[in-house]
């Protein structure tokens, strides 16, 4: 057997049609995991009694198990739980008609939540104690200080990690086909399987992933530059 270039030429545009599904998975999973990560970071930063050990146990569990196992658990166990819950509540909604992409969003955001939480907590710790006291001294409430003073600075410190999270998330979307979501890897598997040209099909996705991730990284760098105005000491350093 030889590498079939003609097949690659034909398959590439077909697979590229599924790029929006991949991007949708990345974007929705990221925006699901960001608030959860921020909440977990805040719980761990404040060391809230009762909640903090729970959050840490969750983080350790997610970090300690393969993503593929998490995906299978979410995909195979949550429908049962949801169905019995809805039945209990007397709803007639059929869970099994729900698009499987919802499970994919949820499953993919599990591990990025952990990374975001860890990055934001570390970011919060780099913000000096004086910043918090400064906020309180001008009459802001605790949550206000957290939101307007500490959080933006923590975010800028965590920004490089956020870029990594997006890259990791994009790579993880390749697992979504195990949940019957057809994105680029899933499409390549179908196309390659139909004529037993797996290698050629995967060369196409390989190229597409490199392009997608390179573009996302550029986008993120630009965003990082814009958000860096909140970095501590930026203005004083500029003057000096």
């Amino acid at each position: 057997m030889r590498v079939d270039l003609e097949f690659i030429r034909q398959a590439l545009p077909d697979i590229a049609k599924y790029i929006p599904v991949t991007l949708l998975l990345v974007v929705v999973s990221f925006f699901l995991s960001f608030p959860a990560g921020a909440l977990f970071a805040w719980i761990n930063y404040k060391k809230i009694r009762g909640l903090s050990p729970l959050v840490r146990a969750y983080m350790s569990l997610i970090r300690g198990t393969p993503v593929i196992l998490q995906i299978y658990v979410i995909y195979n166990v949550t429908p049962y739980l949801l169905a019995s819950l809805l039945e209990h509540m007397g709803s007639s909604f059929n869970v099994y008609r729900l698009n499987t992409i919802w499970y994919a969003f949820f499953a993919l955001s599990l591990s990025s939540t952990v990374t975001i939480a860890e990055a934001l907590r570390a970011g919060m710790e780099t913000v000096g104690r004086g910043q918090f006291e400064g906020g309180l001294s001008v009459g802001m409430s605790g949550p206000q200080t957290m939101w307007h003073i500490v959080f933006p600075q923590a975010l800028t410190a965590a920004m490089p990690v956020m870029g990594n999270v997006v890259v990791e998330l994009t790579k993880a979307t390749s697992l979504a086909f195990t949940m019957a979501v057809t994105e680029i890897t899933g499409r390549a598997k179908i196309l390659g399987g139909s004529v037993l040209r797996y290698f050629e099909a995967y060369i196409c996705v390989f190229v597409l992933y490199i392009v997608i991730i390179a573009l996302l990284e550029q986008l993120f760098k630009r965003f990082e530059k814009r958000i860096s105005v909140y970095r501590t000491g930026r203005h004083s350093r500029a003057k000096a």
């Binding site: 030889r2 790579k171 797996y198 995967y202 992933y209 490199i210 991730i213």
Partner: peptide, 25 residues
Amino acid sequence: VTVVRCTPSLVMLFLVFYGLPLLVG
């Protein structure tokens, strides 16, 4: 480094598994 960093492990796994015998030929 950039190319490898941008490739999902699953895709790389398939590329090596199906591609190595094909490329050696």
